[in-house]
């Protein structure tokens, strides 16, 4: 049976992990590859590197990081952030990334998903969606772009369905309301998107404790759960999370 995945996400700038990693026994806490290897040892199912680099020199460093990752990691990894064109995506896939996640660029030009999926296969294209609840309307969420700074007026559930139709292989769904809150995933949002598409959905944003991971799967109906700080700060290990999920009857790879 296909297991539910647990995915740590690292923010990477100029090839270095940013946003406080406090992980025991790392030689270099800023090295995304070494951190990813530790997560592999803890049985992470894959890892996501989110590139928050703004400059083109910095992006070249991220391509170099992806290339190193393809040599040193023995689990799947996705690189997200900053892709503008099919050529950008090609560069990253050629460097060795298994998947890329596209966000703002797909909103600006949805045909980018279609073209990229045709060129590299649907399995290589994640559509990342940052969604925020519409005030006064608990069952409606709006897509935001540019790191959550810009509202688009686009309905998140409808956009997820369109992205899937255009050939995205997975949806990486982040609740902006919950991100960083440690209050748990936005379950109604996750479930609405999971039911609207027939591709896997990765839930993101808000986990603070073990129960949240299980909720994302059992109540949110997600196929994978993503977290960052709880893992980076060593508050929870991937193994603990998976053992807890297993105790809730969720199939996981232990």
């Amino acid at each position: 049976m296909l297991t539910k995945r647990v995915i740590p996400c690292m923010d990477v700038k100029d090839g270095r992990v940013v946003k406080g990693v406090n992980f025991v026994n790392l030689r270099d806490a800023g090295d995304p590859i070494e951190l990813a290897q530790r997560y592999d040892e803890q049985r992470a199912d894959e890892v996501i590197f989110l590139d928050i680099t703004a400059t083109s020199d910095g992006r070249k460093t991220t391509v170099d990081m992806a290339s190193r990752a393809s040599e040193e990691l023995h689990l799947p990894y996705c690189v997200g952030g900053g892709f503008r064109s099919v050529d950008d995506i090609r560069t990253m896939i050629a460097a060795g990334a298994d998947k890329v996640s596209i966000n703002s660029a797909a909103i600006a030009d949805p045909s980018l998903i279609t073209t990229a999926a045709a060129a590299f296969g649907t399995q290589a294209i994640l559509c990342a969606i940052d969604a925020k609840q519409v005030p006064g309307n608990p069952n409606k969420w709006e897509v935001y772009v540019h790191g959550g700074r810009k509202a688009t007026g686009i309905d998140a559930v409808e956009w997820a369905a369109e992205a899937a139709k255009r050939g995205a292989g997975e949806i990486l769904l982040t609740s902006m309301d919950r991100d960083g809150s440690k209050d748990g995933f936005d379950i109604p949002l996750t479930r609405a998107v999971a039911r609207a598409v027939n591709i896997p959905v990765i839930a993101s944003g808000g986990v603070g404790k073990l129960e949240h991971f299980a909720e994302g799967i059992l109540e949110g109906e997600a196929d994978a759960v993503l977290a960052a700080s709880v893992f980076h700060f060593g508050e929870l290990t991937i193994r603990e999370v998976k053992e807890y999920m297993a105790s809730c009857g969720i199939p996981v790879r232990l």
Partner: peptide, 10 residues
């Protein structure tokens, strides 16, 4: 119903 692509550890 099953999600396709079949992605992950099986």
């Amino acid at each position: 119903r099953y999600k396709i692509p079949h992605v992950g550890w099986n």
